[in-house]
Design a protein around this nucleic acid. Structure first.
Lengths: 202, 202
DNA sequence: CCGCCCTTCTGACATTTGTCATGCGAGCCG
DNA sequence: CGGCTCGCATGACAAATGTCAGAAGGGCGG
């Protein structure tokens, strides 16, 4: 009656080390490993694990989108996210995707093993510190379009390009940017992008 | 005659797992662990390891600056960097700091163990892919002031603020920014900042 | 059904940028 | 020494951006 675990992380060093540590626990068995988002999904389909432990940042597709796919295709498989840089918005998106555990990589392996068991039992676990951050950061004050435009502005593109990609007029883009900037209380759109990123609102 | 290793990484999960894996190697012994830059330095002073394995990004002080301090204070201790996001400029800075090994976290634990031995023997090891990136990225085309101004521009501050912080006139700041932008062949200063970051030139 | 908010647009304006020409002094190399 | 580049600066002009007012349609809650 051991818990079958899928491990997805692009860092071979960590994945291997983690697999070794989890293998020490009698009731956990790592049935598959993956280094990318798509690979994680394929492995999940092939091995049908009880719990999928996903890194947030992976090449191909991030942990949250993999979790969404898994929830749709394999309802019996619980998912959890492990991450180095836990930003408030990620937690929110993750919970919306049906993720049942969200922990930073600063926890110890024993803790992780316990949390895997918790998640497998159908309960949830969210790192208290990340939860506090998420609550204090609150919800996005931006409307959907404002966030969308801000995201397109993220790589420093000029307004004309943003307008084209969003199929909006340049004036409208500038209005959205302007209102986003004033809502966030920052100097200009670039600072707005940075802040929104930090808060996980984009 | 085993190699005494210091392990510094802010992610407890990884550090612990790594310590466990390295402990499996007969000739390696982890004598100290640290989660922050200053802690790593203190541990190095206290335990005088043969090899210090440092994460690039840690709270307090990054791996390269810790390596610099170690080189100055403990000449007998070799240093190496392990990182998730290997950017070309980091490699350069690291080598300048006397670091003898530079590897991404995508390597396996066995490889890492081998590399620790290599480094301990006084040789160097640089991940071939990172080395190739560094060579193809080449050296910064920016002058010292251009880079400085670009760095101040990094958080989206307006020219007036940059000028103030750099004690330059606004016109001069704009000139530097302009020349940096044209040298990097990008659209505007924000894209320039991003590119320079990516290449590790700031 | 009325009011409110979101979306989208236009036009006008002030401000901030990016670009260019040009000037001057310092340091360096042949 | 004479040219060369680099750092630093002006001033002026064009383009991009930020800000504001206003207006029209859609949708949703009271």
């Amino acid at each position: 009656m051991s818990v079958r675990v899928l491990l997805a992380d692009d860092e071979h060093l960590i994945r291997g080390a983690l697999a070794a540590l989890l293998a020490l626990e009698d009731d956990l068995v790592v049935v598959a490993e993956a280094a990318t988002g798509p690979e994680a999904l394929a492995m999940a389909r092939a091995h049908r694990p009880d719990v999928a432990v996903l890194d947030l940042q992976m090449p191909g597709a991030d942990g949250v989108s993999v979790a969404t796919s898994i929830r749709d295709e394999l309802p019996g498989c619980r998912t959890m996210i492990v991450t180095s840089h836990g930003r408030p918005g990620h937690l929110k998106r993750a919970l919306a995707a049906g993720v049942r555990g969200f922990v930073p990589k600063t926890v110890s392996a024993q803790r992780l093993a316990e949390i895997i068991r918790t998640v497998h039992a159908g309960n949830r676990y969210v790192d208290p510190e990340l939860a506090a951050d998420a609550i204090s950061a609150g919800d996005t004050p931006l409307t959907a379009r404002e966030a969308e435009v801000l995201e397109l502005a993220a790589d420093g593109a000029p307004v004309s390009e943003i307008a084209e990609r969003a199929a909006l007029s340049q004036g409208t883009v500038r209005n959205y940017l302007s209102s986003a900037v004033s809502k966030l209380g920052v100097e200009n759109r670039h600072a707005a992008v940075r802040l929104a990123r930090e808060r996980g609102w984009v």
